[in-house]
Design a protein around this nucleic acid. Sequence first.
DNA 1: AAGACGAAAGTGGTTGA
DNA 2: TCAACAACTTTCGTCTT
Length: 323
Amino acid sequence: MMAETKSIERQKNEDSGGQNQLECPVCSSENIRQDSETAELICQKCGTVIEEDMVEESAEPRAFTAEEREKRKRTGSPLTYTKHDRGISTQIGHGGSLSEVAPRKRGQYHRIRRWDRRIAESRSRNLRFALSELQKLVDDLNLPKSVHEESARLYDKAIGQETVKGRKIEKIVASLVLLVARDQRVPRTLREVAEASDIDKRELGKNYRYVARELDLRIIPARPEDFIPRFGSKLDFSGHTQARALNIIEQAREKDLISGRSPEGVVAAALYIASLVEDEKRSQKRIADTIGVTEVTIRKGYQDFVEGLGLEQEVEKAREDQN
DNA sequence: AAGACGAAAGTGGTTGA
DNA sequence: TCAACAACTTTCGTCTT
């Protein structure tokens, strides 16, 4: 359906990305790599995007919340709210040199504290609980503070629209985290968010659609590529193998082998194939458990991708070399 | 024993009439 | 709105390493 951009030029040296004396603000790992395609700095340990928009491409990041069509509440005050609270996302990563990110978490959350002040003013027990829940989720899932902030903002908005009424706060918060993280290209799987928030996976699956609808958020499917750095490092894959997996996904997309498949399944299959041909083999079981799919799903994707991309010989050769 | 393979049956989501 | 459909899961027996 949608014509994918056929990107011709392909960087060869993905893994020669900058190794700076930079420290991840979330997990303090120094293993940070620059994604050659998106120019984002990504923590290889937890998948946090350190700084985005280095190249100024204001097209997509905001697409998701950009247009809030006013809800015609007969009486209510429709749009007095945030016309666009641009501030948040544009300030991030704008503040200047990278070295400023590293020196301590001190003061790092001052913008979040603004929300704390609001609590004091409104004395909203609801909001307080929601934000502590949010804090816990963001911590557990190692998400960057930009996700934290945007989720808080959206929750506040949800309260204004009364969509929260009668709904479990935890479910709303978890839904927002799922949606925002995905939108900011540091996706977490449904399973991960469900586990971290102690909500039934199925419940959450229904709920986040509802939340998205109520807040007029576009539901964009997670991009398989965005999972590679995090799962790749969880499985101890080299940059080389991860790059290969990215390459497989890209090719698979061009041949339309991806649509209809779950992103997790795609990632799992791509990593498995890459692990074979790059001689860093991992068992199907290990990859399946790490990502949260079954081995059967990996096998299916494996078959379709290998055949569709003509990788038979390469895989075959790799198998021989193992003996 | 561990890993890989694939069949069978059931589930939830998407799609098209 | 309902039925068909593909992807995915669970379970399990078999084969390979």
